[in-house]
Design a protein around this nucleic acid. Structure first.
Length: 154
DNA sequence: GCCAACGTTGGC
DNA sequence: GCCAACGTTGGC
């Protein structure tokens, strides 16, 4: 079993949207590394840290899991979509994604608080210059995060 | 294949 | 709005 951190802009899909819907298709990823994680490395049941980015209070806001194997992203073929990709062929789709289902909403574990946790020092998310919207999380990092989520805010 | 220009991400 | 970091594009 592997663990992942997946960034979502709350204006696009927030933890409350995930609570309401129960499961969401992770469409719109247009970065090859992130796509490869979903296509090649994710397995159904993998743990997901649901992270709010590009917002006033960035941080982990919930736990989720990978709900299905990767499949073609429909938005790449939709000229009306902002994720439309004219260079992607229907018989050889460039972009794939998994679905993510809710495990539970948590308190906000803010980016600032995470930066203060020694156990997360090596976390990919926290590395300088990291911009990837999907990053692997080690089992030790997962344990530290879930433990912190169950504790009071620092 | 190199690399400059440009675009995007995302915290601050 | 700024800007660092990094990915992508495209001319050569």
């Amino acid at each position: 079993m592997s663990y992942w951190l997946m960034k979502s802009e709350p204006e696009e899909c927030s933890i409350d949207d995930l609570v309401r819907l129960g499961r969401v298709p992770w469409t719109g990823v247009r970065n090859y590394q992130a796509r490869n994680f979903m296509r090649d490395d994710m397995r159904v049941g993998d743990g997901v840290l649901f992270y709010h980015s590009s917002c006033p209070e960035p941080g982990v806001t919930g736990l989720a899991e990978v709900a299905c194997p990767a499949y073609p992203d429909a938005t790449q073929f939709d000229p009306q979509s902002k994720y439309f990709d004219a260079k992607s062929a229907r018989d050889n789709p460039r972009w794939l994604h998994v679905d993510v289902s809710l495990v539970r909403k948590t308190r906000l574990l803010s980016l600032a608080e995470m930066r203060g946790m020694p156990a997360l020092e090596g976390m990919r998310l926290l590395q300088r210059g990291n911009r990837l919207s999907i990053t692997p999380v080690s089992a030790a990092e997962w344990r530290a995060v879930t433990k912190a989520l169950d504790a009071k805010a620092a």
